[in-house]
Amino acid sequence: MEYIELIVATIFVNNILLAQFLGNCPFLGTSKKMETAAGMAMAVIFVLVMAGVITWVIYAWLLVPYKLEFLRTIAFILVIASLVQFVEMFLKKSMPALYAGLGIFLPLITTNCAVFGVCVLNIDKEFGFMQSLVASFGYAAGFGLALILFAGVRERILLARVPKPLQDTSIALVTAGVLSLSFYAFRGMV
């Protein structure tokens, strides 16, 4: 029950894109087409779950015992960057089909603040191992959901007549605001 609550909280109530504002650069960048958005969402779910678990392990078993919590930022970014590289090599060798789908998105994930942000949030909220795992998945699924919903809306905006100054990023942000408003309704659920 606790985990179900956590999943609902991370996907809907504290949606990482629309309520926490993490990972907004890829949110605007890769949401122009549904295909790209879906690829990016899958890649983020894949990497984020692994990164959430590994950084939790590093933090709890390595940094805390030696009282090195202040090194969190640099240690995490190092681990995430290496992880992404590792996943890329691993996929290329053992799952070429999956690599063909996700490959071009993987390098983008290193500097995706959603991944890094979730790892830091897991620590800040003092989650245990299982909680970190579930929360990482929930946040990533929330990222994917919001991204895919937004891509669907943006494909429609493409056909609408938008006043010149509002075009491109500007109308996308206002749309994201409306989408965020609909997620706002989940507030108070958990």
């Binding site: 629309l18 309520a19 504002f21 100054p165 509002l166 990023t169 500007s170 109308i171 996308a172 942000l173 206002v174 749309t175 994201a176 605001g177 409306v178 965020s180 408003l181 997620f183 706002y184």
Partner: peptide
């Protein structure tokens, strides 16, 4: 609130 951030930035970008 959260939605206001997106809309305010969008409108400022428009301006």
């Amino acid at each position: 609130q959260a939605p206001g951030a997106f809309i305010a930035l969008g409108l400022m970008l428009c301006a």
